[in-house]
């Protein structure tokens, strides 16, 4: 899988599709075929390092996970394991935590996604409406929190969430929360805290992406709108928003897929709040627990495959429906 990177909606050349360039008529059909064979061989030679890595990092683990999921877990009584059919899926689905973890993800998504989308689109429009140095400076400042990825963002939030020394200790005091454990574990707080963390680390780069989409709008279109008497609001609402709809859909789906794999944040918030949170808040944590607490590899593989199917579905939607990836992959 991608090492945590998403593609920008990309500018694309107006160059011709491969192979449709100059071909002299003197070439015979046989000669052309020979040339083409050379081209094919060259292509696969050049692709081979990537193909090897694709096999190691993508294809083989998927097939091996399918194989593992169909095994029986090794137990002290039956250390051999062996074919277990769909029993590992039964184990996963009947685990009391299974639906809970997805419920937890939904409660985070419901809080986070709307704020995230509103923030991305709103701030990208504001930046776009601010040409020159001011807009560029603001875009850069919005990007900075995104540089604190993963664990660094978490430590920053530990600093913010701990009433003992937080710059927003006042807020926690007003809410009657005086320890980080109380802040994190008080009922109903977690979705908002996770939403804040995800918003903080994700917003900046998405502003840049959507801003890139806005910069693709031809000046003539915006000029025409303003000649027709549209003010800034009208232009943003009736002209810019419809044009960047593919980027908005793209951002929404990518963030949705991201939400399903949450792991680090709940795992470490649990650690800093003296295990006051459920040990398995999210599906990925549950899969991790199957593998590393229960040593039930078949169930861990089954859990991974379930998450894989969900994110694969979202991924297919992005590639086919977002309208950003052209026709070549259809």
């Amino acid at each position: 899988m991608s090492q945590g990177t998403i593609a920008p909606p990309q500018a694309e050349a107006q160059s011709q599709p491969p192979g449709r360039g100059l071909r002299t008529k003197r070439q015979s059909a046989a000669g052309r075929r020979k040339l083409h064979q050379r081209e094919v061989r060259g292509a696969w030679t050049l692709l081979s390092p990537y193909m090897v890595l694709l096999l190691i990092g993508g294809i083989i683990p998927i097939f091996y996970a399918v194989y593992t999921a169909l095994q029986r877990p090794a137990t002290p009584v039956q250390p051999e394991g062996g074919f277990g059919g769909i029993s590992s899926f039964v184990t996963v689905f009947s685990d009391f935590r299974f639906w809970q973890t997805f419920g937890n993800i939904f409660s985070v998504l419901i809080v986070w996604l709307p704020i995230m989308m509103l923030g991305i689109v709103g701030l990208a429009l504001l930046v776009h409406a601010s040409p020159g140095r001011f807009g560029n400076t603001m875009r850069f400042l919005y990007y900075i929190p995104g540089a604190l990825a993963g664990i660094a963002n978490l430590v920053l939030w530990v600093y913010l969430l701990n009433p003992a020394q937080s710059p927003i200790a006042g807020l926690w005091n007003v809410m009657g929360l005086d320890t980080i454990k109380a802040v994190v574990a008080t009922d109903g707080n977690l979705p908002f805290i996770l939403a804040g963390m995800l918003f903080f680390q994700g917003i900046g780069t998405w502003i840049v992406v959507v801003n890139g989409g806005l910069n693709g709008i031809p000046d003539e279109v915006l000029e025409a709108a303003s000649i027709d008497g549209a003010n800034a609001w009208h232009t943003a609402w009736h002209v810019k928003l419809p044009i960047i709809r593919p980027w908005i859909g793209y951002a929404a789906l990518m963030n949705l897929a991201y939400g399903f794999q949450l792991f680090l944040e709940p795992q470490l918030l649990d650690q800093v709040s003296s295990n006051a949170l459920p040990d398995q808040t999210t599906p990925t944590q549950l899969g991790y627990a199957f593998a590393f607490s229960n040593y039930n590899f078949p169930a861990a593989a089954a859990m991974s495959l379930i998450l894989l199917v969900i994110t694969l579905g979202i991924g297919l939607l992005i590639v086919f429906r977002s309208g950003l990836f052209g026709e070549e992959e259809k």
Binding site: G4, A7, A65, T68, A257, Q261, F263, A301, T311
Partner: peptide
Amino acid sequence: AMVMPNTVLVIP
């Protein structure tokens, strides 16, 4: 592969 979160394959 690019648009999917990289964590889903970690356990496999």
